[in-house]
Design a protein around this nucleic acid. Structure first.
Lengths: 207, 207
DNA sequence: ATTATAAGCTAATTCGGATTAGCCGTCAAG
DNA sequence: CTTGACGGCTAATCCGAATTAGCTTATAAT
């Protein structure tokens, strides 16, 4: 009963490490603790396992963002955001985002897998770009545009502010994916990044 | 005679598209215009082809950066840099870097290949990080630190400035790798990024 | 001219991995 | 108690891809 899920779990781990083409069904089976032919009691092919992972991750992502938007677009007031986003608030937000992407049991493996398969077909390309570029950037742009309308941040292009905020996070993330031992260093860099971002963009209300 | 190089060339193209594990020697041979067994007159295995590509690209990269440093670290004076780096100079530098990474016949394919193979072994991880993160960031940090020492840019942490400058370039690059049709849009974004970067960091010598 | 070498080809060979066939124990429902 | 679905196993099967064997032609050096 539980085996079906464990197959996805172990397969995801392996795909994230080696890429689909370099993983053998025997390895997946071994990781689960069964023999290769037994996999076929649960999925009809290796490709089918991959697709099941994809479907589950898309679901998970949709539920995730739906949860964000539940209290999101309509429920947040500008005042909520002004209150929450001090410099320390930004640091917390950035580190939270980073740590979530880096350590969430599924998100992390799925991102690596997608990294390795991103050029295989356009569905995977689009999924990658959506999840790790367009949607985070849009989300943050809306936040920054609110902060600009208030007097909190300088009146600069909020899309670019989002890029300035998020691109470094993304880049440090890809570094840590390759070199987990650089996480501490990256976290320090991340905090310096956000504090400098904050200094640079803070409205100098000296008038 | 020329065949040996053409094999590397076509293999690189295929590896960049599909990843090593999903390319068959027959495909490489076909692209070159010969039959698979003939490949073995030139390389002793598929892995050998991959290694040859790797070696060539490392050479190329070393020569490239050596050329930069020839007029680089010692030959440049601070004055040279002050002169060259106006806002338009920065835009030009950013777009130049971006276009080079995106369109250089070899750099571009090699980067995609490395993207797909980056988790295979630690040599490839380190190579990727070195070429697309650490070295560009260090190089730019030295430039920005010079601009800070002068009165051109605000006295902020030059490492972080380099991150703010380069991470967006890197991110837009990865987007264009997946979606070549987004290049125009990305170039516009890139210019907005650099002009805003420039506005934000420019020393306000109003005293 | 002769020979050696380079570089190609076709036809094996090898090998490993995905998938299928078919058998067996367990356990819950009737 | 027996039957059928579930999920596991071993032993094929199938197949495709990497590599090797061995032949052939061209060409360049002796």
């Amino acid at each position: 009963m539980n085996t079906k899920k464990r197959i996805l779990d172990e397969a995801l781990t392996l795909f994230a490490q080696k890429g689909y083409g370099n993983v053998y069904v025997g390895q997946i089976a071994e990781a689960v603790g069964i023999k290769a032919p037994s996999l076929y009691k649960h999925y009809k092919s290796k490709q089918d396992i991959f697709n099941a992972i994809l479907d589950e991750m898309k679901d998970r992502y949709d539920r995730q963002t739906a949860a964000l938007n539940m209290n999101g677009s309509d429920a947040y007031t500008d005042a909520d955001i002004f209150g929450a986003v001090s410099e320390d608030g930004l640091v917390e937000m950035g580190i939270g985002l980073f740590s979530y992407f880096l350590h969430d049991e599924y998100v992390c493996r799925f991102r690596k897998m997608l990294t390795l398969e991103q050029f295989h077909n356009s569905e995977l390309s689009r999924l990658y770009t959506k999840q790790y570029a367009d949607e985070p950037l849009n989300y943050q742009a809306t936040i920054f545009s609110i902060l600009c309308r208030g007097e909190v941040l300088k009146k600069e292009d909020a899309d670019i502010m989002a890029l300035h905020f998020f691109a470094p996070i993304y880049m440090l993330l890809t570094i840590c994916d390759r070199h987990p031992e650089r996480e501490t260093e990256s976290l320090k860099m991340l905090e310096r990044h956000i504090r400098q971002f904050s200094r640079i963009y803070k409205e100098t209300t000296r008038g």
